[in-house]
Nucleic acid binder design. Structure first.
Lengths: 250, 250
DNA sequence: AAGTGGTCTAGACCACTCA
DNA sequence: GAGTGGTCTAGACCACTTC
C-alpha cells in the first residue's frame, strides 16, 4: 500500500499509522488529540481531523467524543475475499469459459425455500443449475434460486448467454448479503459432473443476496472441486462504514 | 446498517446512497458534481465533499479529478469474514475452550519453509501443532511456523496458556497478510485427532502474516472438520483504503 | 470548567479534463 | 476557459467526558 506523504493529511496519516503498525502505540493506547497534532504539524484542525477520520474508517482508530482517540483493539482480523463472476475469474486467468444448463425451471417454493425467501409456500421461484467450464474442465456448479417477482426480466434470461451474476449486478447493484463457505462431500451426481476424484472434497460457497429493503433476491450455492479451487484474499483490520453508529461491540 | 440523516452529511450521503442501491443511478452513471449538490442541499462545499469522500472510501463511488463523480462499477463483491482467535470464537458461542499441545519445537527450516519465509535454509523456526477443543470436542488443529528472530519472546510462550494468535496480536498488531481457504481430505492422523467421520472433508485456512516491512512472521494452517465448522461473513462492495492511490484497475 | 471529537462554514489555490 | 475534484485554512458551535 503506497502512502501519500505528499499532502499534509498524508504526513499526519503516515505518522500515526507508522506508530500503530510499528507497534510503538499498542492497541488501546491513547493517540495525541487533534489539538496536539495541530500543534505538532502546524496545520488546521480540519486537516488533522480528516486524517484521523480516514484511519478510523479503516479500522485502525477508535474515537470517542469527549474522551479521545485510541488505537483500535485488533482482536479480530478480516479476510477480504473477492467474489466474482466465474466467467470473469476464468477470463482473468486467461482461460476460456463455457457454461452448460443442467436445470432451468420455474417451480413452486417448497416449505424450506419459502422460509428462506420469507415468502408464502407455493410462491413461484426460478431455479437454475449450471455447470461452468474452464477450458473444458468443469470448475463450478451453480445452483441458484431467484425470486422472479423481485427481479423483473430474469425469467427471460438465457443463462448460457449472460450469467445470473452479471444480470443481477445490473438490476440490483450493491446488494446486501451473507455468504457461508463450507467443505463438503458432494453427492455422486455432483462428483460425476465436476469430474472429481473418489475421495475429493468440494468447496461450497453459499450466498444469500438481499435487496436494500431486506427481501431475499437470490440464493446461490456454488460448488467447486477441492483440488481445483481455493478461496483467497487479503487480511486487514475490520473496516468501519461511515453509516454505522460508533461500535457497540464492547 | 443505520444511516444517520441527523447531520447534513448524513442527508447527502443517504440521498446519494439511496439512488445507488435503489438502482436509480446505474453503475458508471454520473453523480451530481459537488457544486450541484451544494446548490441542492444549501451546504458548504466541504460538507458535500465529506459525504462523497466517505462513499468513495466505501467503494460506492469513483471520483476523477477534472472529470466528475461516478457510481463505481461493482463487478465484484467482497466477502468480509472475521478471522478470530479460536478461543474467542468459542467463548462467543458460550463454549469452553481447551488446548492440547501436539508438537512444540524449534527446528531448522527446510528448503520449502525457508523459501516461504524468505530466509536462508537452516535458519531456526519455531514450530507448534495445537489441538483446540470446544467443550471437549476437537474443533481445530493449528499448525504454525514462526520466525523467532522477528517475534522476540515467542519461544518462551506456553501455547496452552496464551494463544499464538493473541501473542502475535500483541507484538505486531495490524499485520499485513493473505489467507487461502481450501477443502481438503486430511491424512489419517488429522482425522483421528479431530474425530472426523470416514468420508468427512476438512476446511483448511492458511494464513501468511507479514510485518509491515514485508517479512514473513508466521504461517498458520488451521484445519477444521467440515461438518462442524463453516466460514461466514458479510458481502459488501470492495473498500478503498485512503492510503491507496486512485484505482488503476481500468 | 477544561478538554475532547463531530460538524459546519465561506472562502481559497491547485491539478486536472474537456471542449 | 469552464468545470471538476483535492486540499487546506481559520474560524465557529455543539455534545460529550472527566475532574
Amino acid at each position: 500500500m503506497r502512502e501519500p506523504t505528499s499532502s499534509l493529511q498524508g504526513e499526519i496519516r503516515a505518522f500515526v499509522l507508522g506508530k500503530i503498525v510499528g507497534g510503538e502505540w499498542a492497541p488501546g493506547a491513547r493517540v495525541p488529540s487533534e489539538t496536539e497534532l495541530v500543534a505538532r504539524f502546524g496545520t488546521s484542525r480540519m486537516t488533522v481531523h480528516h486524517a484521523l477520520k480516514a484511519l478510523t474508517a479503516e479500522g485502525y482508530l477508535r474515537r470517542v467524543k469527549g474522551l479521545g482517540t485510541f488505537v483500535a483493539p485488533p482482536r479480530a482480523h478480516v479476510l477480504h475475499a473477492r467474489l466474482t463472476d466465474v466467467a470473469d475469474e476464468i477470463a482473468e486467468r486467461g482461460g476460456r469459459h463455457r457454461c452448460e444448463v443442467l436445470d432451468h425451471d420455474v417451480r413452486c417454493a417448497s416449505a424450506a425455500e419459502a422460509a428462506l425467501f420469507q415468502l408464502p409456500p407455493g410462491e413461484r421461484l426460478l431455479h437454475a443449475r449450471l455447470l461452468h467450464f474452464e477450458n473444458d474442465t468443469p470448475l463450478q456448479i451453480e445452483d441458484r434460486l431467484i425470486d422472479p417477482a423481485r427481479v423483473p426480466g430474469v425469467e427471460d434470461l438465457d443463462p448460457a448467454a449472460e450469467s445470473y451474476f452479471a444480470f443481477l449486478m445490473g438490476k440490483v447493484p450493491y446488494p446486501a448479503g451473507r455468504a457461508v463457505v463450507r467443505a463438503v462431500m458432494p453427492p455422486m451426481e455432483t462428483r460425476f459432473l465436476l469430474r472429481m476424484g473418489p475421495e475429493e472434497p468440494a468447496l461450497e460457497v453459499e450466498r444469500v443476496t438481499r435487496a436494500p429493503d431486506g427481501a431475499v433476491l437470490t440464493v446461490a450455492r456454488l460448488i467447486y472441486p477441492g483440488t481445483r479451487y481455493v478461496l483467497s484474499g487479503e487480511i486487514a483490520p475490520p473496516v468501519g462504514r461511515a453509516g454505522d453508529i460508533a461500535g457497540d461491540d464492547e
